[in-house]
């Protein structure tokens, strides 16, 4: 109660203990502190998993697996890097392994569009840019189709794009996260954008062809 009152009085920042403090407690045997650490980072971890997998259940499972791995590997955590970055490396590598496990072929991309998916492709072909942006936020099929498009990429290409575009990491940060060379990240990013453009054009052309 005292802590709560103090935090209300002095601002929320005092109530939030740094990650390092919680990690020290966990390593000293106070495992309950891990729950606080996990609660703090769970939204970001789940969001990153959702960038890789459209199925919310798969994303949740992977997030859960990430925290199990983090807990197990916590003694090897080096404090010179932020805990969030360390956790991101774990979740990205988990998602990357899962992508490699369940990779689909590009020819599956233009297989069977549902009616809402066809509507979304039609909207992308015809509507104004501002209408497209507005509609994308409300339409689940826009999200699902984007996942289908990204699923045609090689796992490493998709990982690079996700880390660069969604997480806003630099090339060297992506390289550090994945344990790859900077040159590899640059090449993969370039090829990923090329492949993505090509597949997106196929998808929109297919939508145009079917609507005519």
């Amino acid at each position: 109660m005292l802590g709560l009152a103090a935090s209300r009085k002095t601002g929320w920042k005092l109530a939030v203990r740094p990650d390092e403090e919680l990690i020290t407690e966990i390593l000293n045997g106070q495992t309950a502190a891990f729950s606080e650490l996990a609660t703090r980072h769970r939204p970001r971890v789940e969001r990153l998993c959702q960038r890789f997998f459209s199925d919310p259940e798969v994303a949740r499972d992977l997030a859960q697996e990430c925290f199990i791995r983090a807990y197990t590997a916590l003694p090897s955590y080096r404090r010179e890097m932020p805990f969030g970055g360390w956790l991101r490396a774990i979740v990205t590598n988990l998602c990357y392994d899962e992508l490699r496990r369940r990779r689909r072929r590009p020819e599956e991309l233009i297989a069977d569009f549902s009616a809402p998916e066809m509507q979304w492709i039609g909207l992308v072909n015809e509507a104004t840019p501002e209408d497209i942006v507005g509609a994308a936020e409300e339409r689940r099929e826009a999200h699902d189709l984007a996942h289908r498009l990204l699923e045609t990429l090689r796992p490493e290409d998709r990982t690079v794009l996700t880390l660069k575009d969604s997480e806003g990491l630099s090339v060297s940060e992506v390289a550090e996260t994945m344990g790859w060379s900077v040159a590899k990240v640059k090449i993969r990013a370039f090829r990923a954008r090329q492949a993505l453009r090509k597949q997106a054009e196929r998808m929109t052309a297919s939508g145009r062809g079917r609507s005519q």
Partner: peptide, 15 residues
């Protein structure tokens, strides 16, 4: 770009 943006560039939670 709009075909992949809902996943790669959206700041909001997916609907």
């Amino acid at each position: 770009f709009a075909m992949s943006a809902p996943v790669l560039h959206s700041a909001a939670e997916p609907p």
